[in-house]
Structures are given as C-alpha cells and as structure tokens.
Amino acid sequence: MGESIVVDARGLSCPQPVIETKKAIASKPEALSVLVDNVAAKENVTRYANTMGYDVTITQEEDGYTLCLKRR
C-alpha cells in the first residue's frame, strides 16, 4: 500500500474543491479522502466523484466533512 491520498479542500469555495479532487484522481487511485468545510463543496465533490466512478462515504466532522472516495 502506498501513502493514502488526502485532498484538503477546506477554506476553498466552489468550484475549487472539485478542481482539486480532479487533480488528485487523475492517476486513478483506488481510494482517497477529501476534506471540505461547506455543504456546496460536499455535494459538488460527491457528484463529481460519482460521475467519475467512485463511491463516496461522508463523515461529518467538527469543522466540516470527510469524504472517502473508493473506486467502483
């Protein structure tokens, strides 16, 4: 197993979190985590990941959400 990929998109407004996620999945990793701190980013990254063939599990954190992306 390689190092786990974490995209920290907290503090970014749309569409930046999706752009950062796009960069991170360019190499088609099996799994990665995306940290976001607002609802729009959570929803948009989820839509993008689903369309790109990833399942998303969302965990609410104190300062936002952790999205776990797993390739289908």
Binding site: C14, P15, V18, V39, A40, N44, R47, Y48, N50, T51
Partner: peptide, 12 residues
Amino acid sequence: YADLGMLPEGLY
C-alpha cells in the same frame, strides 16, 4: 456539468 459537481453555491 451538474453531474460533474459544477453547481454554484447559490444553488444550494
């Protein structure tokens, strides 16, 4: 583009 998560914050 909506399927790619290109939704503006105002939409939410």
